[in-house]
Amino acid sequence: MNLPQIARNTVAAAAFAIAGITGFANAQILDTPATHAVIMDHETGAILFAKAGEEPMVPASMTKMMTAYTVFEMVRRGELSMSDKFTVSENAWRKGGFPSGTSTMGLAPGDTPTVEELLHGVIIMSGNDACIALAENISGSEEAFARRMTNLAHELGLNSANFLNATGLEAVGHVISAEDLAKLAKLTIDNYPEYYSWYSLPSYTWRDFTQANRNPLLEISGADGVKTGHLEVSGYGLTGSAVRDGIRRTIVINGLPSMAARAAEGERLMRIAFNSFDLKTLTPDSVDLPDVPVWLGETQKVPVKLSSDLQIAGYKASMEKAKAEIVLPGPIEAPVSKGDELGKLIITIAGQKPMEAPILADADVAKLGFFGRAIEGLSHMLGGSESQS
């Protein structure tokens, strides 16, 4: 018996237009001088724009976002308290204090700051000494703490991460992607809002040493984090996040030639993130999907609908050319019950990963009786009905 084409295909796809996605024009194609860049919609987690976004890169002091997140997790689990006092070693002082010539909290050997004070030193002052003090007191060595950071990152789905220290100072193989840094920012904001607010503090003082927050975006309306980074090998980088009119967007940039270039490009990409991207919600009631063919059913097609709301975020110029497809895992054979998951709706927007949501049968389709199946089979053997794909 010859099956119709829909039944012979392992995947059946039908392209069609969805009203409400299109209608934007006159926007330029986005580019950036940064070697790595990402724009992420916070609510959906959708990557709106990426340039080498999945490529592991040297994060420099943006590493400290993971250092802090690891400590936040330990506090939540009861392994640490914010009031615990840690002793600063000579190693932490030499490698991350004033003698190191790197960004520092200004700690001295024998100091006993609290975990909370050290976190302020990490987040606001970008203190390498604060990072090393936390790492040594928690795990015995910075290397052991870095392994803990990497393991936690992988548990969180940040699979590009490989941390060799807690500071972000240069080490061959110490990397994470821009996309994973954006995801880490989202995790911090969603899971630890009470600590995320520290990222927006303008400065912090340890004893008589005050360091201003280096994040240039904090002067922009709605910006509230997160972290800068710089090494000669990485260039100047920034992970930044802001909220406007209830919408949050996060950017990551790296590989810029100067602090001024970082500030200018950070501000430009954040402005573009809000002005040149759009977010739409498709609901089951608002989307009219084409019927899906059914094999050996009392009716040849079944109506389908989205299983739930689907949020679509994208660059306005690209959304105008969005493509929607219904993708089935194989032939749909009767009987079909209303509510059965039959396949997926996939929305493809240029420059982004496809977005998808399950589609459900919106009606019952009973199976043909014996004579009906025989007639259906004979019809296809004789080429009496059209194949569908």
Rank of each mutant, 00 (worst) to 15 (best):
P4K: 01
I6M: 10
A7Q: 04
N9D: 13
N9F: 09
T10H: 11
T10E: 13
A14H: 13
G20D: 04
F24H: 10
F24R: 00
I29S: 09
P33Q: 02
P33K: 04
T44M: 02
A46E: 12
A50Y: 06
A50F: 07
P56L: 06
A60F: 06
M65Y: 09
M65R: 03
Y69W: 05
Y69T: 04
E73W: 07
E79M: 12
L80I: 05
S81V: 02
F86A: 03
V88N: 00
V88K: 04
E90Y: 10
G96V: 03
T102W: 11
T102M: 13
T104R: 13
G110Y: 12
D111S: 07
P113V: 10
P113Y: 06
V115Q: 02
L119P: 00
H120K: 14
H120I: 02
H120Y: 15
V122L: 05
I124Q: 05
I124R: 05
G127Q: 08
A130G: 03
A133Y: 04
E136V: 01
E136G: 08
E136M: 05
I138S: 05
S139V: 01
S141M: 05
E142T: 01
E142M: 08
A144C: 03
F145L: 06
R148Q: 10
G157F: 02
L158R: 01
A161C: 04
N162H: 14
G168N: 06
E170W: 12
G173A: 09
I176F: 03
S177N: 05
E179M: 08
L181V: 02
K183D: 08
L184T: 08
L187C: 03
T188K: 02
P193V: 04
P193W: 08
Y199F: 15
Y199Q: 04
W206H: 10
T210V: 07
N215V: 00
N215C: 07
L217W: 05
S221V: 07
K227W: 06
S234Q: 00
G235N: 03
L238T: 00
L238E: 00
S241F: 07
R244P: 00
T250S: 09
V252M: 06
N254C: 14
A260E: 15
A260H: 12
R262T: 04
A263G: 10
R268A: 11
F274L: 00
F277I: 06
D278F: 07
L282E: 10
D291C: 11
G297K: 04
Q300G: 15
P303A: 11
P303M: 12
S308K: 14
L310P: 10
I312D: 03
A313I: 11
A317Y: 15
S318K: 12
S318N: 15
A322L: 07
K323Q: 13
A324N: 14
I326H: 07
V327E: 12
L328D: 08
G330P: 02
A334P: 02
A334F: 05
P335M: 10
V336I: 15
K338R: 14
K338E: 13
G339H: 09
L342V: 01
I346K: 15
G351R: 07
P358I: 12
I359L: 12
I359G: 09
K367V: 12
K367A: 15
F371S: 12
A374Y: 11
A374D: 01
E376C: 10
L378V: 00
S385T: 15
S389I: 15
